[in-house]
């Protein structure tokens, strides 16, 4: 503490602190903080019973269950497959690896509307995948399964890109030590590698889950947006906005914002945990 105080008391050699911090705070306030505050300002125009009634109306409740359930499942599936993809990309050599590695980021780079219409058309009754699923009695278009597929698509890079660097930095000596002590490959993975990857996996899961909760563009085309069945929460907000009922839209937005903020906090703690693990390994 004393060290850091004496350090900041020292003359600042580098210029521009006030200018850059000032502009940062001004721009942050103007673009992000003041508009976000408007949400909480708008909710004060509702009375408490009105607010409560809006956020617990049946269509909203159904949308929370769907949004949370589908996001959770999609993130979970991505943890499994994302880990496999990251593992394969770090540990093995195969034809086309560089292209595959670059393509993993596609869900980040592909606009959500494009992903949305593509998935909807692929999984429709006549689509490339939909017509294969049809004889099996599986329907993806306009069902909750479709929402799950879209959320899996957009969540994929989060797990791969959080696990990949940790896996690359993993010290092979730990694995060698474990196996020289008699552990088989499966035990090494389960007892040595996986515990070290857990913080990264959790961070990736939380990032994918948080992204999925707010997702709109890639979901609405495949979902069909049937009330009580396939309406995600952002669609409910959109519906209220289309009817110019800003109070109701804002009330539901507040619920989502609070959940997002809690998740953001969790992610920060998880990331700190991941990094701590990382530096421990280096030391």
């Amino acid at each position: 503490m004393a060290k850091s105080v004496s350090r900041s008391k020292r003359i600042r050699v580098l210029p521009g602190f006030k200018l850059t911090l000032g502009f940062t705070l001004f721009y942050l306030g103007l673009i992000v903080l003041i508009p976000l505050a408007a949400v909480f300002w708008k909710t004060t125009t509702l009375t408490w019973p009105q607010f409560w009634q809006t956020i617990t109306m049946p269509t909203a409740m159904a949308s929370y269950r769907l949004t949370f359930g589908a996001s959770f499942l999609a993130a979970l599936v991505n943890v499994v497959f994302g880990l496999i993809v990251a593992w394969v990309l770090v540990r093995y050599e195969f034809f086309g690896k560089k292209i595959v590695n670059a393509l993993v980021d596609l869900p980040f780079a592909l606009p959500t509307a494009v992903a949305g219409i593509t998935l909807a058309a692929l999984y429709s009754k006549t689509g490339w995948i939909g017509q294969l699923l049809e004889p099996l009695g599986i329907k993806a278009a306009n069902t909750q399964l479709g929402i799950f597929i879209a959320l899996t698509f957009i969540g994929l890079p989060f797990i791969v890109r959080t696990v990949q660097p940790i896996l690359e930095d993993l010290d092979p000596e730990l694995e060698e030590a474990a196996s020289s002590l008699g552990a088989n490959r499966w035990q090494v993975f389960w007892r040595v590698i996986l515990p070290m990857l857990t913080p990264a996996l959790l961070t990736g899961f939380a990032l994918a889950f948080a992204r999925a909760l707010g997702e709109y563009g890639s979901v609405i085309f495949i979902a069909g947006n049937i009330p009580m069945k396939t309406q995600i929460t952002p669609v409910i907000i959109m519906g209220e906005l289309d009817m110019f009922d800003y109070g109701k839209a804002t009330a539901i937005a507040v619920v989502m914002l609070v959940v997002s903020f809690v998740l953001l906090l969790t992610i920060n703690v998880l990331q700190w945990w991941t990094n701590r693990y990382n530096t421990n390994n280096l030391a």
Binding site: P35, L36, A38, V39, T112, A210, L213, G214, E215, Y216, G217, T233, P234, I237, M238, L241, Y246, A249, T250, A253, M256, L257, S260, F261, L263, L264
Partner: peptide, 11 residues
Amino acid sequence: SVSPVIAGLIY
């Protein structure tokens, strides 16, 4: 961490 729909709503 803010849903795109909410990003539009705030403005």
